[in-house]
């Protein structure tokens, strides 16, 4: 059962990664990242459940992941807003000032 859960987590992570890598829009990239974090949550919960239920560390990781997801959302939209307001663009490709 643990392997199944972890496979699910891996699947979610990979789909999220594919989304983050292939999408141009910043918001869609954030959705990709959300999925990746969801994968992490699933993996953490599964590992807690199957390996170390006695300790609460697994749960703490899940809480941390949830917080991370929230922070990622907040900061993502803040940056998107700032970039949109200053550059009137919403795609990651257009904002390539850091180009080497």
């Amino acid at each position: 059962m643990l392997e199944l859960f972890l496979l699910l987590a891996a699947a979610l992570f990979s789909v999220g990664l594919y989304g983050a890598l292939s999408q141009q829009s910043i918001v869609m990239i954030m959705m990709g990242i959300e999925l990746m974090i969801a994968g992490v949550i699933t993996a953490a919960a599964a590992l807690w459940h199957f390996l170390a239920p006695a300790a609460a560390d697994g749960q703490v990781i899940v809480v941390a992941a949830v917080v991370a997801m929230a922070v990622e959302m907040a900061m993502g939209f803040a940056v998107t807003t700032a970039v949109f307001r200053s550059r009137d663009i919403d795609t990651a490709d257009a904002a390539e000032d850091l180009k080497g």
Binding site: L21, I29, A92, D93, A95, E96, L98
Partner: peptide, 18 residues
């Protein structure tokens, strides 16, 4: 060569990170 990966494109950075 070192500058080539700095494409400024976010998704490529993610790819490189991955």
């Amino acid at each position: 060569a070192a500058r080539r990966p700095q494409t400024g494109l976010l998704h490529q950075y993610y790819a490189q990170a991955a």
